[in-house]
Amino acid sequence: MFKPDKEDILEIDAGFENLMHIGLVANNIKVGVIGAGKASLIKTKTFLKAGCEVEVLSPRFDKGFRRLRCECLKLKKEKFHKSFLKDKHIVVIGVSNKKLEKRIIWHCKRLNKLYLVCSDYKLGNLRLGAQERTDEFVFSLSIKRGNPKLSKYLTQKTLNFLQSFTIFCNWATNLREKLKHHPQKDQILEFVCSDDFYYFFKKGYANKVIKLFYEDV
């Protein structure tokens, strides 16, 4: 009988706090926001800033929505109807009516939507981490038990650290593109992405060290 190797047996934490961050190609993502209070406004700004297409559905709108100017934003002054969910990849639920909130969650589950509940993050299957981006990096950070202000503070600390690697990141990424069809691509990149090689990079010897080990690069 086949017996799996120990390395193939994964221990899975089934708890909600076992978060997994994914990278969305934002300009291909449609977001539906239901409710137009302050919490929904914050989430709307986050998705718009990333480049998502956002449609907000509500019978009333916080004045902050009226000040938003973005061609990717659509405001629809109506009550909730389940057809609103049809073409949305992600749903933000920001309503104060608990009965309506439960009904929207039920529809989202039935339609296999990714959904975020503003009143209580534990009710949804999606959380937005604090995010930062530069020309070379995009990253997100979340506190497992929930603490947005701390996430934002630590994200800035992380950004300051990562920025010291900006030049190296640009160089290594250009090298990866150059090695696209090289037979030893994976081996070379493994060699480059290490503390030992980064030491020589900072000293200005990156190209010489590469040539020393891989003459045809």
Rank of each mutant, 00 (worst) to 15 (best):
K3Y: 10
E7S: 12
G15P: 01
G15M: 02
I22L: 05
V25P: 14
N28W: 03
G32Y: 01
G37S: 08
L41N: 10
I42V: 15
K45G: 11
T46C: 11
T46I: 13
F47H: 04
K49Y: 06
A50P: 09
A50R: 02
P59H: 01
R60D: 12
F61Q: 05
D62L: 02
D62M: 06
R67N: 13
L73M: 00
K77Q: 07
E78D: 03
I93Y: 00
I93E: 04
G94I: 07
K99I: 13
K99E: 12
L100K: 00
L100A: 10
W106N: 15
C108P: 07
N112F: 15
L114C: 05
L114I: 07
Y115A: 06
Y115K: 06
L116H: 02
L116R: 01
K122G: 10
N125F: 07
R127W: 04
G129L: 03
G129V: 04
G129N: 02
T134E: 01
D135C: 11
E136P: 00
E136C: 05
F137H: 00
F139Q: 10
F139L: 08
L141C: 02
K144Y: 01
P148L: 02
P148I: 08
K149M: 13
L150M: 12
Y153V: 14
Y153Q: 15
L154A: 03
T155N: 09
T155F: 07
Q156N: 15
F161T: 08
S164F: 07
I167M: 09
L175M: 03
R176Y: 03
R176W: 01
E177Q: 01
E177D: 05
L179T: 05
K180T: 09
Q184W: 00
Q184S: 04
D186K: 08
D186C: 13
I188Q: 01
L189Q: 04
E190S: 12
F191T: 04
D195R: 06
D196R: 10
F200I: 06
F201H: 11
K202E: 13
Y205C: 05
N207I: 13
V217K: 00
